[in-house]
Design a protein around this nucleic acid. Sequence first.
DNA 1: CGTGCAATTGAGCACCCTCAACATGAGTGG
DNA 2: CCACTCATGTTGAGGGTGCTCAATTGCACG
Lengths: 235, 235
Amino acid sequence: MLAQNLSTRCSVCPTRPVCLAKDLDESDRGRLEEIMDPFVCVETRNYLYRAGDVASHHYHVRSGMFKTYTINSNGDEYVTGFYLPGQIIGCAQIDGKHTESAIALETSSACRLLEKNLNKLSSIGIASTLFRLLAEREVLRNRHILNLNQTRAEARVTGFLIDMSGRLSLLGRCPDHISTPMSRTDIANYLGMTLETLSRALARLVKTGVLQTTKDYIKIKQPETVQLLGLHMSP
Amino acid sequence: MLAQNLSTRCSVCPTRPVCLAKDLDESDRGRLEEIMDPFVCVETRNYLYRAGDVASHHYHVRSGMFKTYTINSNGDEYVTGFYLPGQIIGCAQIDGKHTESAIALETSSACRLLEKNLNKLSSIGIASTLFRLLAEREVLRNRHILNLNQTRAEARVTGFLIDMSGRLSLLGRCPDHISTPMSRTDIANYLGMTLETLSRALARLVKTGVLQTTKDYIKIKQPETVQLLGLHMSP
DNA sequence: CGTGCAATTGAGCACCCTCAACATGAGTGG
DNA sequence: CCACTCATGTTGAGGGTGCTCAATTGCACG
């Protein structure tokens, strides 16, 4: 792992508004910093953890974007998620070992919580906050499942865009500008379709003026149309 | 809610081998019983909780089977899971409210853990056990997502059977006998396909001698073939 | 400027979805 | 107990959508 260690300094963290530590006062934040291990920086295409690794930590994304995936015995890759700041990853474990790998799609960082320190969280009344984050994560996963239940490619694509858009909003970033550091292949895989189908679906949406696309981002020009096409997404 | 309250008695619980309390000694189990609220019994077609309810508890399935689902603004139902003893449900929350409903498919029961008591779990060192259960849950959800990524109906069906089969094994029940208290419509919905497609897929698998089906159960006659068809399922 | 990978575009086919008719089974009331 | 009804599940025919395979273009890198 090419990650470098830095000190944990919640007070200067860019992710504070969506962080575990959000609601803590100064003193509890200090105690949280003691419980958490120093966060790690991970450069593009480097791993935060790999499938099979002993799961020593839970991770709290601090900046950048991570992709998680698994590989089955046939060698097929399955992209299981794209994660933005504020989200928890590393939960998917069996017998204390990670079942998926997490790779940085751009220069990223993540706070680390030692598995063994999980019990200590409640001393500062923050265990429930962690559960809240996990609950939100669960809801997002459910939405993704509903999205996959849709057969039409355009519905899945717009569903994906709505999902990303909503998460960007929470971060205070522009909801119309979906940056795509991942490849089209990754997105297609994540959405359970072939690369070609994704490409064609995007092409149609561009032709009708709903989207603008480049290699690096997807721009939503008609948010209402996107909402309409990804209909299942309504809560 | 037509649920009736009973006292919590871990010592006589049928679910002990897969329970949170599994590894606790006598005295800690006593303390757990104090932290947990009395379990509830839920009759067929009654609700454990409903979408929109204030999420006062997490639930730990004790017996029977629950189905969780959401309904979007169009009135479409989406089945999000089938849950067996030992599994945690009620995690999917936003702002402290359930985003899905949980209904009993047969006479069932569930232990209840007050949200407010989450922090107390660590006093008996059991918070990490809860995280382990949540981690396993996460892995199962991931597998389901991979299953949905498969386009062939038979692959999804066999993937579903492998999933159920594995969970039954963990409970010490026969892995070849999948009881189906849910309707075909529910299964099809859960697998992201139409009722007709499911029906045809099952018919083909019966015709080739892989399965036997009745309204109440699906019997796996050729486990190897099932494994083969649900190929993604390999870890 | 070439090389190699990623992404787009095209043609044909397989599979699933839609719509429809039919069969089965559970629940009800006579 | 039987007939009736309604819900659920099965089977059939036809059309649409995505997948497969293949060729082409676009883009980053050396």
